[in-house]
Amino acid sequence: MQDKKKQILEAAIRCFARKGFHAASIQEIADELGMAKGSIYFYFKSKDDLLISVFEYYVEMLFDRMEGLPEEKGLPPRERLMVQLERQFAFFRDHLDFMRMLMKEPVTGLHPEIRELMLRFRSRIKVWNISHIIAIYGDRAEDFSGDASILLSGIVGQYFEAILLEEVKLDDRRLSRFIVKRLDDLMHGIQLADEAPIMPKPNLNKLRELAGLPVETMDGKKALLQELRHSLTASDTSSADEKEDLLSILRQLEDEVDKPAPKRLFVRGMLALLKQNAPSAWHTNLERLEEQLKRS
């Protein structure tokens, strides 16, 4: 993004946070920057257009922080959620003006495009939550992933409010780990209760479509095998010979799973070899893979 356009967006958010969208004027934003009012109209057609751009700018920045980094691919799923939550809280504290603007007035009713952006935002949060929940707790958690996503969002949202409204100073790393431990407690309680879920089982592909994300066509077994291969490639905990042996097993498994009628005994043998030799960080994904292979 051009520096000047970025400066205008950041000045606009400060003005909207102080006065609200309706009360703030383009002239005040120009004064904030010490530039001519006409310069803003060179980049944005109207105040509505500026507000829409503010939303797009901050939402994309937030999701950049929430997405996994290449060096995190080898981390266990629970650890990945912790570090991504930690970055999310750091983003929140670094951009309190944007959050204050959201609290100042119901901006979602100002423009149809804003409502559409918020729908995409909510869907993307759900995809993010549910993907992490299934990665950590396996396919058995899928039926309850809609309820778990709401509970996770509720916990995170309440801490956001405490930071914003009560100005509580929190340690992002400790908080993110505390939240994931409480998510463990919730999922354990849900599974022990043996109750029917409140929310219907989410359709991840439909949610991805609503979020403006590409729909995943790869089936679960292939996706898990691919994730294991990526994590092995990124890992520096195995020797070159161990890596080559594990990669060979993974390739053979992928080839067999791809066949119309995979040989069950061969698949079971390859899976047993993986479980015997794989790093401990693979434990959850191997359990999920075993469940999926049993059902196929």
Rank of each mutant, 00 (worst) to 15 (best):
M1N: 07
K6N: 12
K6I: 07
E10F: 12
A12E: 01
I13V: 15
R14P: 03
F16G: 01
F21N: 00
Q27D: 14
E28S: 11
M35W: 09
A36M: 09
G38V: 09
K45T: 15
S46I: 10
D48E: 15
L50Q: 03
L51W: 00
I52T: 03
I52D: 02
I52K: 03
F55W: 04
F55C: 04
Y57L: 07
E60R: 13
M61H: 05
L62K: 14
R65E: 15
M66V: 04
E67K: 06
G68V: 05
L69S: 06
L69V: 13
L69D: 06
P70F: 05
E71Q: 15
E71K: 12
E72C: 11
P77D: 03
E79D: 11
R80Q: 12
R80H: 08
L81P: 00
L81F: 09
M82R: 13
V83I: 15
V83E: 04
L85H: 00
L85M: 14
R87C: 06
R87S: 08
F89W: 04
F89D: 00
A90R: 13
F91L: 11
F92T: 02
M99Y: 06
M101F: 06
M101Y: 04
M103D: 13
V107M: 06
T108V: 10
G109K: 10
H111T: 08
R115S: 11
E116H: 11
E116A: 12
L117M: 15
R120C: 03
F121D: 01
R122S: 02
S123C: 03
R124M: 01
R124L: 01
H132P: 00
A135K: 10
S145V: 00
G146I: 00
D147T: 02
I155F: 05
Q158P: 01
F160P: 00
A162Y: 07
A162F: 05
L164A: 10
L164M: 08
L165G: 07
E166M: 12
D172S: 15
R173T: 14
R173L: 09
L175S: 04
R177H: 14
R177D: 10
F178G: 03
K181T: 11
L183N: 01
D185N: 14
D185A: 11
M187P: 00
Q191W: 09
D194V: 06
D194H: 12
A196K: 10
I198T: 14
I198H: 07
M199C: 08
M199Y: 03
M199H: 05
P202V: 03
L204H: 01
K206N: 05
K206D: 14
E209Q: 11
E209P: 02
L210R: 04
A211G: 04
A211C: 09
T217G: 13
M218L: 12
K221T: 05
L225H: 02
E227M: 10
L228M: 15
H230A: 09
T233H: 12
S235P: 06
S238A: 13
S239I: 12
E242R: 13
K243W: 08
K243S: 06
L246C: 07
L247A: 10
Q252A: 12
Q252D: 14
D258V: 07
D258E: 13
P260A: 14
A261E: 14
A261F: 13
A261P: 02
R264P: 06
R264Y: 12
R268P: 02
R268L: 08
G269L: 07
G269Q: 04
L271V: 05
L274W: 03
L274E: 04
K275G: 04
P279A: 08
H283E: 15
L286K: 04
E290K: 14
L293G: 03
R295V: 10
S296K: 09
